[in-house]
Design a protein around this nucleic acid. Structure first.
Length: 184
DNA sequence: TATTTGATTCTT
DNA sequence: AGAATCAAATAT
């Protein structure tokens, strides 16, 4: 089932954690590719110094101020793209960065490599990810309990001072098998 | 208008 | 440890 707008209209950290185990699905001229999400990061509001929106509403960050469930794709270090999905209400800038997925048992680690594998670039910026066009999220019934998720500091945000330490990176544990499925 | 930097990755 | 490579932010 495709994740809809209300799913993303929630606190960003909650959306980030719940995206672990969901699927990212890409449909393009070469067919359809789906990957289980295993790592994400939350970026929350103008007070979060690591969030691009901390600089205010600019041409670049404008999309984060818009409605949730929309793609925010940007170019980093001149050569790699990063995929985010906008969260929370319109007017509150926040998003979740998709850092790693698993496709057919193979882990695609890192936002730049992920975007390369999924053929994602800035032409997909502002795409509605709830409209099932050429990129969307699916819940395929995979149950991930809180004990299977590691909370870690975000990567590459040392410049953000105190905000750099916030444990807003979520990664699926791969060292532990046969974890009982349970809601919490 | 010029310089610096960065939500990265690959090579040395 | 450093290069690749460029848009956006910041300094001048």
């Amino acid at each position: 089932m495709v994740l809809t707008r209300p799913y993303f209209l929630r606190p960003t950290v909650m959306v980030a954690r719940s995206l672990i185990g969901k699927y990212l699905v890409r449909h393009n001229g070469r067919g359809t590719l789906a990957g289980k999400i295993i790592e994400v990061e939350a970026y929350v509001g103008t007070s979060d110094k690591a969030c691009h929106a901390a600089k205010g509403r600019t041409a670049r960050t404008d999309v984060m101020f818009g409605p949730p469930g929309v793609a925010y794709v940007y170019l980093i270090y001149g050569m790699y793209h990063c995929l985010n999905v906008v969260t929370e209400r319109e007017g509150f800038p926040a998003a979740v960065l998709i850092r790693a997925v698993e496709v057919d048992g193979e882990i695609i680690d890192g936002p730049g490599r992920l975007c390369r594998a999924f053929d994602i670039d800035r032409s997909l910026n502002r795409l509605d990810l709830t409209a099932k066009q050429c990129l969307w999220f699916e819940d395929r019934g995979v149950c991930v309990s809180r004990s299977q998720i590691n909370r870690l500091p975000r990567i590459g945000v040392d410049y953000a001072g105190e905000w750099a330490h916030k444990p807003w990176r979520f990664r699926l544990r791969t060292d532990e098998k046969d974890v009982v499925c349970r809601e919490d």
